[in-house]
Nucleic acid binder design. Structure first.
Length: 297
DNA sequence: CTAGGATCCTGTCAGC
DNA sequence: TGCTGACAGGATCCTA
């Protein structure tokens, strides 16, 4: 899915469209994609957009909130006009799309993969999700922090000290480091892409036991995680803007920053060795066998 | 408690 | 062409 940088991008992007906008009607096409009674969120205004790790939360006027998790293939696509008057009369941007990159960003909606549709006064927000792992959940605003998922989230890399991170790695010393940094209760925000990118940047082999990392390794890895995610947020994450190039052809937003992810067979940007793809912690894993050594002293 | 694997679901792609 | 299995930007549940 969409990892932390994508959700942060979605939050910032949607803010201009749906903050202070009223939800007129909610249509649920797939029952398991919406938890709770959608009627309760109708005729309510979105006061605030918040992010908790990879979850997006829309706070409503009636002290309820919609918690949205995109998981692997979720997307949020808004079709309509920007709310901000500052957008002016010549609003070019009529659609804002972000999340799992696919043709849905530019397709006619709703379509086969549309699970929930939220009609606002100024447009429509589509929640698309091919694999149905994602969901929208209606909760009391006061209960958001007590939600089982949000409650166990660890700190984000920016809020964590290298010492803290190192201590956490020691607690899971027999697991592969990649598995450990994918665990949201240990460090929050990384997914499969940024885990691979962070490990590459810190020159750490994904299969190394967490306990074999030195304090310096831990510090480097934490720094790398911050850097790769900041860079992705700065480039707009996975959005319609990065998916459709200026000439109308399809691009891959990974081109903007990925050094190893989806680059198997291509030269390592650091040493020229061929990037390889393996399997670690049950996930496809990309690395440079020269820059990231398993053996170390 | 940790660690690893199966599982939820749909779609696409490589290999016969 | 049609079938089959592998796999996918996540997290949880079950087992040992």
């Amino acid at each position: 899915m969409p990892e932390l940088p994508e959700i942060e991008t979605i939050k910032r992007g949607l803010n201009g469209f749906i903050k202070d906008a009223k939800i007129k009607k909610i249509t649920v096409f797939c029952e398991k994609s919406f938890l709770g009674n959608p009627k309760i969120a109708e005729n309510q205004t979105v006061n605030n957009l918040r992010r908790f790790g990879k979850a997006l939360v829309l706070d409503l006027t009636n002290h309820k909130s919609l918690m949205i998790h995109l998981r692997m293939t979720g997307q949020l696509i808004f079709d309509g006009a920007k709310k901000l008057a500052s957008a002016g009369p010549n609003v070019v941007e009529k659609r804002y799309a972000a999340g799992h990159p696919s043709e849905n960003f530019i397709a006619a909606l709703p379509n086969k993969q549309t699970r929930v549709e939220l009609e606002f006064e100024n447009g429509t927000l589509y929640f698309n999700d091919q694999r149905k792992f994602g969901f929208i959940k209606l909760l009391e605003t006061a209960e958001i922090e007590n939600d089982s998922f949000i409650k166990k989230l660890a700190k984000e890399p920016w809020a964590m000290t290298a010492e803290e991170f190192y201590e956490k790695l020691q607690k899971h010393k027999n697991s592969a480091i990649k598995a450990v940094i994918l665990d949201q209760s240990i460090i929050c925000g990384l997914g499969n892409i940024y885990a691979d990118e962070s490990l590459f940047a810190a020159k750490i082999h994904p299969e190394r036991k967490s306990g074999s990392l030195s304090k310096i390794d831990a510090e480097n890895l934490l720094e790398a995680a911050k850097n790769v995610m900041e860079k992705s947020i700065a480039s707009g994450g996975s959005t319609m803007a990065t998916y459709v190039k200026a000439d109308g052809t399809r691009g891959d937003y990974l081109e903007l920053f990925a050094q190893v992810f989806h680059r198997e067979g291509k030269p390592c940007p650091c040493c020229g060795e061929k990037i390889i793809k393996t399997r670690v912690a049950g996930r496809g894993t990309h690395l440079c066998p020269n820059c990231q050594r398993k053996e170390h002293d």
